[in-house]
Design a protein around this nucleic acid. Structure first.
Length: 390
DNA sequence: GAAACGTGGCA
DNA sequence: TTGCCAAGTTT
């Protein structure tokens, strides 16, 4: 472990006259990094993909495969949501070669529910490429940046955490911390280059990976979007925003466009044995490559008069309810229709047996639709009986 | 550079 | 309930 007390004592505070001004000098930067690392040693979160600072100091290094996997899953996604998916993925596919050997279909199924499904396609594509080059991830930011699904943030994060490179890791947490530290009034989208430049000044040559993770942990646990716990912050003496009395004001954001509402209908066709009719969505676009029940387009309002025409085939469709779902750029209301049907699956469709449904690559919105028609149908078999009375 | 791209938790 | 927003990338 790092010598916490010495680190703290070795960190001179800013000169009295400098308090309130942004100290971006090299000396000030070292102080911030040192204080942050000492705080991280004591207060870092234990996460499934993380090697503790203590183990790292003894020479234990993070597995680039696991770092990559976690970083991709964490893109725009909460830590709590990622944990179970990460554990499942690394158990199913412990190495990048194992993931490369897996059918893409299985990867999509395992990703179902986590969202932003192009990540899953890119994850598989990236694994295939890395496996081809011997299973070794590039050890530099530039090399990583060329792989599918790895952008500026993820390349820097992997380079720093897995390969000990002094990369400037800038995610939403870091943006929040930095805009507060320096009271950056520029709206976020414009301020990114400035934030990156400031982070580059802060990154220490020693322990850059821990520094990156410390910044993100600080943002996640202390420098939170709402009600930041400034009294516990290791760099409160360096923070400009705290002096303003309203650190929550940062980062400054531009107002958002409001979301349009789209409507449509979903059709849950159920066979006597409980199988449900499904189909695969196109590889690109919304929910690309995922599985769905047949639906109308999601732009037109569908009323009772057009229901039979909108369905993929004629059946005794009965309205089972309505579900709502909010995507990133629009809200959706789907009228859900249910019918009991017999016969073969229409072209482009397939039957999913009752016990297989929970394992299909069904996005959450599709599970909602199925649940509206057949409660319990998408739950794991242990909590759902296929012998449900018809 | 703007728009597309999921989901769940929390106030 | 509605809105915010979380370890971003691709086109």
């Amino acid at each position: 472990m790092a010598p916490l007390d010495q680190t703290r004592k070795a960190s001179p505070q800013a000169a009295p006259g400098d308090i309130g001004s942004a100290d971006t000098s090299k000396a000030g930067s070292r102080d911030i990094a040192s204080r942050l690392l000492a705080w991280y040693d004591a207060h870092h979160r234990d996460l499934p993909w993380r090697v503790s600072p203590g183990a790292f100091a003894r020479g234990v290094r993070a597995d680039p495969y696991r770092v990559w996997m976690s970083e991709v899953m964490l893109q725009q996604t909460t830590v709590e949501a990622v944990k179970a998916y990460f554990r499942n993925f690394v158990e199913k596919w412990p190495t990048v070669e194992a993931l490369a050997a897996a059918p893409a279909e299985e990867v999509m199924k395992a990703w179902a529910g986590l969202g932003y499904y192009s990540r899953a396609r890119n994850l598989k594509a990236c694994a295939d490429l890395v496996a081809l080059r011997g299973g070794r991830f590039p050890a530099t930011e530039a090399g990583l940046r060329e792989l599918p699904g790895i952008g500026a943030y993820t390349a820097a994060a992997i380079a720093a955490i897995a390969f000990d490179q002094p990369a400037a890791v800038v995610d939403g947490n870091v943006e929040r911390v930095m805009t507060r530290l320096y009271s950056i009034e520029t709206p976020l989208s414009e301020a990114k280059p400035q934030i990156r430049a400031l982070v580059e000044k802060l990154v220490p040559q020693a322990r850059p990976g821990d520094f990156a993770q410390a910044m993100m942990d600080l943002g996640a646990t202390i420098c939170t979007p709402k009600r930041p716990r400034c009294m516990l912050c290791p760099v409160r003496e360096d923070c400009s925003a705290i002096l303003s009395g309203d650190p929550e004001r940062f980062p400054v954001r531009l107002p958002k466009d409001d979301k349009p509402l789209r409507r449509g209908a979903a059709f849950v066709a159920e066979r006597a044995d409980g199988a449900i009719l499904l189909r695969k969505r196109p590889e690109k676009g919304l929910l690309g490559g995922m599985t769905e029940v047949p639906t109308t387009g999601w732009t037109a309002r569908v009323d009772g008069a057009t229901t039979a025409d909108a369905a993929p085939f004629r059946a005794d469709w009965r309205r089972a309810g309505q579900i709502g779902h909010v995507f990133t750029h629009f809200a959706l209301e789907l009228d859900v229709f249910h019918a009991r049907v017999t016969g073969d699956a229409p072209s482009g469709h397939f039957w999913s047996l009752a016990h297989e449904i929970s394992g299909e690559a069904l996005p959450t919105v599709m599970k909602k639709a199925i649940e509206a028609a057949i409660p319990g149908a998408t739950k794991k078999p242990s909590s759902y009986s296929a012998k449900r009375p018809a």
